[in-house]
Write a protein that binds this DNA or RNA. Structure first.
Lengths: 207, 207
DNA sequence: TAGATTGTTAATCGATTAACAATC
DNA sequence: TAGATTGTTAATCGATTAACAATC
């Protein structure tokens, strides 16, 4: 089964496996069975074995899985070891938090630059990269060819900016604005983070 | 079908319906069919009707759905109109962004107070509420009975803080730290926002 | 070797989609 | 009334779980 055929349900579990395996590795655990991992993660052993076997056999009968090896393998499956160049748009409150707090290299990205429309914010450096005015976007993209963009923009300007970025050859988006990018643009990859949806889900579940 | 029986898949779609209906309402659209809404949202008309009918019949044969009425109805289903008291823990970069940027009342919450361990941050006001030292947590909870907590804490202290909060009668959590709260504590409601998982999913999907 | 645990196939379960009678 | 569209039941599809032979 190739990467393309793996269902989104499985894909979305991979980072969680990666996270748990990192914790196991850090606590010095070398070997784990699907049964034990299932108990720790609140899954079934069957599901774990099915998930891993979408990408190949990482275990050994009678033994289980080697934690550091599996961790490494999942990292490679996700693409951690092959970072993609990315730009961040919108250095407001949220953009600053994302840029300052997320460890991009450990998630398969390299932050190349930050863009904002405010003259006060541009011209300096933030989170180790330059902050540029949005006017310089096209030139920057030609020069550094970022493959992804993190959209920390107000919802009003997000769709317009998206069109611009797609025209500049960027087709992968991490979107924090209140619109669903996938709907309008087929062919692009977008992860929409809707904090409001998550919060309303919590509210509903409280009864 | 009561709220309890509705599957999580359906529940998680409700805030998205709410968002789209708000946009429709704001643009003055009064009537919409499941077919038209499906086209706009990238769903099937069947699914939309199934989803809404988990909570009762909001439509009218031959007509469709009245947008403002449906918007109002979904808001009530989520619980927007009955806000729950909440405290926010951890006024770091992320905590500040959440407190300052999220419109809590429009999502069914009322922010009662913010807690932090740093003396520099406590004693002042932020996002319209007081910032208190974590030492005052127990007293505050007895006095104001918050029902939920937003955890913007470092992962190291999150599980410990959770135990404390559960003991103080809080059982609903919006969690931004790198741990999965549901695993350790059954009976509590937790929405874990794993930005890292979302970002790694994007990385995987980029190939 | 015997015990354990994987990889994988088959069975079950739940969610989505299709169909259509009811009815506005 | 005729056309449209819902609410709801039945069919399909996909994802999860169970089972077990392979094998370390």
């Amino acid at each position: 089964m190739t990467k393309q055929n793996v269902s989104l349900s499985v894909i979305r579990r991979m980072p969680r496996y990666y996270r748990f395996l990192e914790a196991l590795k850090d606590s010095g655990i070398v070997r784990i069975s699907s049964k034990e991992l299932a108990a720790r993660m609140g899954l079934t052993a069957s599901q774990i074995r099915q998930d891993f076997n979408c990408f190949g056999g990482f275990g050994q009968q009678g033994y289980g899985y080697n934690v550091p090896e599996l961790y490494e393998a999942i990292g490679k499956i996700i693409g951690i070891n092959a970072p993609k160049g990315v730009i961040l748009l919108g250095l407001g409150n949220l953009g600053q938090t994302i840029a300052a707090n997320i460890n991009f290299p450990s998630m398969g990205f390299e932050l190349l630059g930050i863009f904002d429309i405010s003259a006060e914010k541009t011209g300096r450096r933030f989170a180790g990269v330059g902050v540029y005015h949005t006017d310089e976007l096209a030139e920057f993209c030609r020069k550094y060819s970022p493959e992804a963009a993190f959209l920390c923009l107000p919802s009003e300007v997000a769709p317009r900016t998206l069109d611009e970025l797609v025209a500049l050859g960027i087709n992968s988006f991490w979107n924090f604005s209140h619109c669903d990018l996938t709907v309008s643009h087929p062919g692009i990859v977008a992860e929409n983070v809707h904090l409001g949806d998550s919060l309303m889900t919590l509210r509903f579940r409280m009864g």
